[in-house]
Write a protein that binds this DNA or RNA. Structure first.
Lengths: 137, 137
DNA sequence: CTTGACCCCGTACTACGGTACGGGGTTTAC
DNA sequence: GTAAACCCCGTACCGTAGTACGGGGTCAAG
Protein backbone atom coordinates (compact mmCIF):
# COMPACT_ATOMS: atom_id res chain seq x y z
CA UNK A 1 0.00 0.00 0.00
CA UNK A 2 2.16 2.82 -1.33
CA UNK A 3 1.08 6.45 -1.18
CA UNK A 4 -0.52 6.19 -4.61
CA UNK A 5 -3.30 4.08 -3.13
CA UNK A 6 -6.08 4.96 -0.75
CA UNK A 7 -8.06 2.79 1.57
CA UNK A 8 -11.76 3.32 1.36
CA UNK A 9 -11.80 5.34 4.55
CA UNK A 10 -9.13 7.76 3.37
CA UNK A 11 -10.75 8.13 0.00
CA UNK A 12 -14.10 8.89 1.57
CA UNK A 13 -12.56 11.49 3.87
CA UNK A 14 -10.65 13.13 1.04
CA UNK A 15 -13.68 13.37 -1.14
CA UNK A 16 -15.94 14.40 1.71
CA UNK A 17 -18.24 11.47 1.14
CA UNK A 18 -19.65 8.84 3.42
CA UNK A 19 -17.71 5.60 3.31
CA UNK A 20 -20.86 3.59 2.70
CA UNK A 21 -21.64 5.79 -0.24
CA UNK A 22 -18.32 4.91 -1.82
CA UNK A 23 -19.18 1.24 -1.52
CA UNK A 24 -22.59 2.02 -2.97
CA UNK A 25 -21.07 3.77 -6.00
CA UNK A 26 -18.81 0.84 -6.56
CA UNK A 27 -21.80 -1.51 -6.54
CA UNK A 28 -23.62 0.76 -8.97
CA UNK A 29 -20.67 0.73 -11.34
CA UNK A 30 -19.64 4.36 -10.91
CA UNK A 31 -16.26 3.40 -9.55
CA UNK A 32 -14.30 0.60 -11.14
CA UNK A 33 -13.72 -2.36 -8.82
CA UNK A 34 -10.45 -1.57 -7.11
CA UNK A 35 -7.70 -4.08 -6.49
CA UNK A 36 -7.57 -5.58 -3.02
CA UNK A 37 -4.90 -6.40 -0.53
CA UNK A 38 -4.35 -10.02 0.44
CA UNK A 39 -6.76 -9.52 3.31
CA UNK A 40 -9.44 -8.05 1.10
CA UNK A 41 -9.02 -4.32 1.72
CA UNK A 42 -9.79 -2.09 -1.26
CA UNK A 43 -6.92 -0.02 -2.65
CA UNK A 44 -8.20 2.86 -4.70
CA UNK A 45 -5.97 4.80 -7.09
CA UNK A 46 -5.40 8.38 -6.01
CA UNK A 47 -7.53 9.78 -8.80
CA UNK A 48 -10.64 8.09 -7.45
CA UNK A 49 -11.05 11.28 -5.44
CA UNK A 50 -11.46 13.20 -8.67
CA UNK A 51 -14.01 10.74 -9.86
CA UNK A 52 -16.05 11.06 -6.68
CA UNK A 53 -16.02 14.82 -6.93
CA UNK A 54 -17.13 14.58 -10.51
CA UNK A 55 -20.03 12.40 -9.44
CA UNK A 56 -21.10 14.82 -6.73
CA UNK A 57 -20.95 17.84 -8.99
CA UNK A 58 -22.81 16.09 -11.74
CA UNK A 59 -25.60 15.20 -9.35
CA UNK A 60 -25.96 18.85 -8.46
CA UNK A 61 -26.48 19.50 -12.14
CA UNK A 62 -29.41 17.13 -12.29
CA UNK A 63 -27.77 14.01 -13.67
CA UNK A 64 -28.85 10.68 -12.22
CA UNK A 65 -26.30 8.06 -11.26
CA UNK A 66 -27.18 6.21 -14.42
CA UNK A 67 -26.47 9.25 -16.57
CA UNK A 68 -23.26 9.90 -14.70
CA UNK A 69 -22.16 6.36 -15.37
CA UNK A 70 -22.73 7.03 -19.06
CA UNK A 71 -20.77 10.26 -18.91
CA UNK A 72 -17.89 8.49 -17.25
CA UNK A 73 -17.97 5.81 -19.88
CA UNK A 74 -17.31 8.33 -22.64
CA UNK A 75 -13.72 7.92 -23.63
CA UNK A 76 -11.61 6.94 -26.51
CA UNK A 77 -11.00 3.25 -26.17
CA UNK A 78 -10.14 0.36 -28.39
CA UNK A 79 -13.45 -1.31 -27.49
CA UNK A 80 -15.67 1.20 -29.25
CA UNK A 81 -15.50 2.95 -32.59
CA UNK A 82 -14.70 6.64 -32.73
CA UNK A 83 -17.95 7.31 -34.52
CA UNK A 84 -19.94 5.66 -31.79
CA UNK A 85 -18.28 7.65 -29.05
CA UNK A 86 -18.60 10.80 -31.03
CA UNK A 87 -22.32 10.30 -31.45
CA UNK A 88 -22.90 9.61 -27.79
CA UNK A 89 -20.79 12.54 -26.79
CA UNK A 90 -22.67 14.90 -29.04
CA UNK A 91 -25.95 13.82 -27.47
CA UNK A 92 -24.54 14.61 -24.05
CA UNK A 93 -23.29 17.97 -25.22
CA UNK A 94 -26.75 18.82 -26.49
CA UNK A 95 -28.20 17.83 -23.10
CA UNK A 96 -25.76 20.06 -21.35
CA UNK A 97 -26.43 22.98 -23.64
CA UNK A 98 -30.13 22.69 -22.98
CA UNK A 99 -29.46 22.87 -19.28
CA UNK A 100 -27.25 25.89 -19.73
CA UNK A 101 -29.97 27.64 -21.71
CA UNK A 102 -32.56 26.95 -19.06
CA UNK A 103 -30.29 28.22 -16.34
CA UNK A 104 -29.54 31.36 -18.29
CA UNK A 105 -33.23 31.94 -18.72
CA UNK A 106 -33.76 31.58 -14.99
CA UNK A 107 -30.92 33.92 -14.29
CA UNK A 108 -32.39 36.51 -16.59
CA UNK A 109 -35.69 36.40 -14.75
CA UNK A 110 -34.01 36.71 -11.41
CA UNK A 111 -31.95 39.64 -12.58
CA UNK A 112 -35.11 41.35 -13.66
CA UNK A 113 -36.42 40.75 -10.18
CA UNK A 114 -33.40 42.29 -8.48
CA UNK A 115 -33.62 45.40 -10.61
CA UNK A 116 -37.29 45.69 -9.75
CA UNK A 117 -36.26 45.49 -6.11
CA UNK A 118 -33.62 48.14 -6.60
CA UNK A 119 -36.08 50.49 -8.20
CA UNK A 120 -38.76 49.64 -5.65
CA UNK A 121 -41.04 49.27 -8.61
CA UNK A 122 -43.92 46.82 -8.55
CA UNK A 123 -43.45 44.06 -11.11
CA UNK A 124 -45.24 40.94 -12.18
CA UNK A 125 -46.31 38.69 -9.38
CA UNK A 126 -43.67 36.04 -9.89
CA UNK A 127 -41.33 36.86 -12.73
CA UNK A 128 -39.47 33.61 -12.54
CA UNK A 129 -42.46 31.87 -14.02
CA UNK A 130 -41.71 33.71 -17.22
CA UNK A 131 -38.66 31.54 -17.65
CA UNK A 132 -38.67 27.85 -18.45
CA UNK A 133 -42.27 27.87 -19.50
CA UNK A 134 -41.62 26.63 -23.02
CA UNK A 135 -42.62 23.28 -24.42
CA UNK A 136 -39.24 22.57 -25.96
CA UNK A 137 -37.08 19.60 -24.94
CA UNK B 1 -66.05 27.01 -14.24
CA UNK B 2 -65.19 29.35 -17.08
CA UNK B 3 -62.43 28.58 -19.53
CA UNK B 4 -59.92 30.44 -17.38
CA UNK B 5 -60.05 27.60 -14.87
CA UNK B 6 -58.81 24.07 -15.12
CA UNK B 7 -59.87 20.99 -13.28
CA UNK B 8 -57.00 18.97 -11.94
CA UNK B 9 -57.32 16.41 -14.70
CA UNK B 10 -57.12 18.98 -17.49
CA UNK B 11 -54.25 20.73 -15.82
CA UNK B 12 -52.35 17.49 -15.46
CA UNK B 13 -52.92 16.60 -19.11
CA UNK B 14 -51.90 20.03 -20.32
CA UNK B 15 -48.71 20.00 -18.33
CA UNK B 16 -47.97 16.39 -19.17
CA UNK B 17 -47.89 15.41 -15.53
CA UNK B 18 -49.57 12.69 -13.54
CA UNK B 19 -52.68 13.89 -11.74
CA UNK B 20 -51.48 12.46 -8.45
CA UNK B 21 -48.28 14.40 -8.86
CA UNK B 22 -50.24 17.63 -9.10
CA UNK B 23 -51.95 16.82 -5.80
CA UNK B 24 -48.55 15.98 -4.38
CA UNK B 25 -47.10 19.33 -5.42
CA UNK B 26 -50.05 21.07 -3.87
CA UNK B 27 -49.44 19.23 -0.59
CA UNK B 28 -45.78 20.16 -0.75
CA UNK B 29 -46.63 23.81 -1.22
CA UNK B 30 -45.40 24.17 -4.79
CA UNK B 31 -48.83 25.04 -6.06
CA UNK B 32 -50.99 27.45 -4.10
CA UNK B 33 -54.18 25.87 -2.79
CA UNK B 34 -56.71 26.44 -5.55
CA UNK B 35 -60.26 27.54 -4.97
CA UNK B 36 -62.89 24.81 -5.03
CA UNK B 37 -66.32 24.38 -6.49
CA UNK B 38 -69.26 23.86 -4.16
CA UNK B 39 -68.73 20.13 -4.48
CA UNK B 40 -65.05 20.38 -3.66
CA UNK B 41 -63.44 20.16 -7.11
CA UNK B 42 -60.23 22.14 -7.50
CA UNK B 43 -60.25 24.99 -10.01
CA UNK B 44 -56.74 25.93 -11.05
CA UNK B 45 -55.97 29.19 -12.80
CA UNK B 46 -54.79 28.73 -16.38
CA UNK B 47 -51.23 29.73 -15.55
CA UNK B 48 -50.81 26.78 -13.21
CA UNK B 49 -49.62 24.97 -16.33
CA UNK B 50 -46.71 27.36 -16.54
CA UNK B 51 -45.89 26.75 -12.94
CA UNK B 52 -45.88 23.00 -13.40
CA UNK B 53 -43.58 23.26 -16.37
CA UNK B 54 -41.29 25.49 -14.40
CA UNK B 55 -41.16 22.88 -11.67
CA UNK B 56 -40.30 20.10 -14.10
CA UNK B 57 -37.58 22.04 -15.81
CA UNK B 58 -36.09 23.11 -12.55
CA UNK B 59 -35.90 19.54 -11.41
CA UNK B 60 -33.93 18.68 -14.51
CA UNK B 61 -31.48 21.37 -13.46
CA UNK B 62 -30.88 19.70 -10.14
CA UNK B 63 -33.11 21.73 -7.88
CA UNK B 64 -35.01 19.87 -5.18
CA UNK B 65 -38.68 20.55 -4.60
CA UNK B 66 -37.72 22.56 -1.56
CA UNK B 67 -35.39 24.76 -3.59
CA UNK B 68 -38.01 25.16 -6.29
CA UNK B 69 -40.49 26.28 -3.67
CA UNK B 70 -37.99 28.93 -2.63
CA UNK B 71 -37.46 30.04 -6.22
CA UNK B 72 -41.18 30.36 -6.72
CA UNK B 73 -41.47 32.41 -3.57
CA UNK B 74 -39.14 35.06 -4.95
CA UNK B 75 -41.31 37.96 -5.90
CA UNK B 76 -41.94 41.52 -5.07
CA UNK B 77 -44.69 41.52 -2.52
CA UNK B 78 -45.95 43.70 0.29
CA UNK B 79 -45.13 40.93 2.78
CA UNK B 80 -41.38 41.15 2.40
CA UNK B 81 -38.95 43.99 2.10
CA UNK B 82 -37.22 44.68 -1.18
CA UNK B 83 -33.86 44.26 0.47
CA UNK B 84 -34.78 40.85 1.75
CA UNK B 85 -35.97 39.65 -1.63
CA UNK B 86 -32.96 41.13 -3.29
CA UNK B 87 -30.63 39.27 -0.99
CA UNK B 88 -32.37 35.96 -1.47
CA UNK B 89 -32.49 36.44 -5.19
CA UNK B 90 -28.81 37.19 -5.40
CA UNK B 91 -28.01 33.99 -3.56
CA UNK B 92 -30.06 32.04 -6.08
CA UNK B 93 -28.37 33.79 -8.96
CA UNK B 94 -25.00 32.78 -7.56
CA UNK B 95 -26.21 29.18 -7.31
CA UNK B 96 -27.31 29.25 -10.89
CA UNK B 97 -24.07 30.74 -12.10
CA UNK B 98 -22.14 28.02 -10.37
CA UNK B 99 -24.21 25.43 -12.16
CA UNK B 100 -23.66 27.17 -15.48
CA UNK B 101 -19.91 27.18 -14.89
CA UNK B 102 -19.86 23.50 -14.07
CA UNK B 103 -21.87 22.67 -17.14
CA UNK B 104 -19.58 24.74 -19.32
CA UNK B 105 -16.63 22.93 -17.90
CA UNK B 106 -18.24 19.59 -18.71
CA UNK B 107 -19.04 20.76 -22.19
CA UNK B 108 -15.47 21.79 -22.75
CA UNK B 109 -14.24 18.34 -21.78
CA UNK B 110 -16.72 16.65 -24.03
CA UNK B 111 -15.78 18.87 -26.94
CA UNK B 112 -12.19 17.91 -26.46
CA UNK B 113 -13.32 14.31 -26.64
CA UNK B 114 -15.18 14.77 -29.91
CA UNK B 115 -12.21 16.40 -31.53
CA UNK B 116 -10.03 13.56 -30.37
CA UNK B 117 -12.51 11.21 -32.00
CA UNK B 118 -12.44 13.21 -35.20
CA UNK B 119 -8.67 13.08 -35.38
CA UNK B 120 -8.64 9.45 -34.26
CA UNK B 121 -5.95 10.50 -31.84
CA UNK B 122 -5.52 8.71 -28.58
CA UNK B 123 -6.30 10.99 -25.65
CA UNK B 124 -6.40 10.81 -21.91
CA UNK B 125 -8.27 7.85 -20.54
CA UNK B 126 -11.37 9.74 -19.51
CA UNK B 127 -11.13 13.41 -20.27
CA UNK B 128 -14.38 14.28 -18.60
CA UNK B 129 -12.76 13.67 -15.28
CA UNK B 130 -10.67 16.73 -15.90
CA UNK B 131 -13.77 18.82 -15.45
CA UNK B 132 -15.58 19.41 -12.19
CA UNK B 133 -12.72 18.15 -10.14
CA UNK B 134 -12.21 21.39 -8.25
CA UNK B 135 -12.85 21.89 -4.57
CA UNK B 136 -14.84 25.05 -5.05
CA UNK B 137 -18.41 25.41 -3.76
C1' DC C 1 -0.41 -9.61 22.59
C1' DT C 2 -3.94 -6.60 23.37
C1' DT C 3 -6.51 -2.38 22.24
C1' DG C 4 -8.30 0.84 19.04
C1' DA C 5 -8.90 2.15 14.53
C1' DC C 6 -9.81 0.38 10.37
C1' DC C 7 -11.86 -2.81 6.93
C1' DC C 8 -15.12 -6.68 5.23
C1' DC C 9 -19.99 -8.01 4.02
C1' DG C 10 -24.92 -8.40 3.98
C1' DT C 11 -29.01 -6.45 5.35
C1' DA C 12 -32.17 -3.07 7.07
C1' DC C 13 -33.71 1.46 7.25
C1' DT C 14 -34.37 6.34 5.69
C1' DA C 15 -35.84 10.47 2.79
C1' DC C 16 -37.44 12.14 -1.36
C1' DG C 17 -40.29 12.18 -5.20
C1' DG C 18 -43.59 10.32 -6.94
C1' DT C 19 -47.52 6.68 -8.41
C1' DA C 20 -51.31 3.48 -7.59
C1' DC C 21 -55.46 2.03 -5.38
C1' DG C 22 -59.98 2.03 -3.80
C1' DG C 23 -64.23 3.49 -1.87
C1' DG C 24 -66.97 7.12 -2.42
C1' DG C 25 -69.46 11.53 -4.49
C1' DT C 26 -70.22 14.62 -8.99
C1' DT C 27 -70.91 15.99 -13.72
C1' DT C 28 -71.83 15.27 -18.53
C1' DA C 29 -73.94 13.14 -22.42
C1' DC C 30 -77.10 10.35 -24.17
C1' DG D 1 -82.09 8.78 -15.13
C1' DT D 2 -78.18 6.20 -15.79
C1' DA D 3 -73.50 5.14 -17.55
C1' DA D 4 -69.00 6.99 -18.31
C1' DA D 5 -65.84 10.06 -17.04
C1' DC D 6 -64.32 12.83 -13.64
C1' DC D 7 -63.11 14.30 -8.92
C1' DC D 8 -62.42 13.68 -3.66
C1' DC D 9 -59.40 11.72 0.07
C1' DG D 10 -56.42 8.77 2.64
C1' DT D 11 -53.24 5.32 2.44
C1' DA D 12 -50.10 2.09 0.51
C1' DC D 13 -46.54 1.19 -2.46
C1' DC D 14 -42.42 2.06 -5.56
C1' DG D 15 -37.54 3.40 -7.30
C1' DT D 16 -33.47 6.10 -6.40
C1' DA D 17 -29.90 7.41 -3.57
C1' DG D 18 -28.07 6.93 0.09
C1' DT D 19 -27.02 5.74 5.43
C1' DA D 20 -26.80 2.81 9.48
C1' DC D 21 -25.91 -1.44 11.82
C1' DG D 22 -23.68 -5.33 13.40
C1' DG D 23 -20.90 -9.34 13.58
C1' DG D 24 -16.63 -10.41 12.26
C1' DG D 25 -11.55 -10.07 10.48
C1' DT D 26 -7.04 -6.94 10.09
C1' DC D 27 -3.38 -3.80 11.22
C1' DA D 28 -0.35 -0.66 13.93
C1' DA D 29 1.12 1.13 18.38
C1' DG D 30 2.43 0.49 22.81
Amino acid sequence: MNRESLTIGKLAREAGINLETVRYYERRGLLPKPPRTASGYRLFPADATLRLRFIRRSQELGFSLKEIRELLALRVSPRTTSAEIRKRTEVKIADIEQKIKSLESMRKSLRKLTSACAGCGPISECPILESLGGEGA
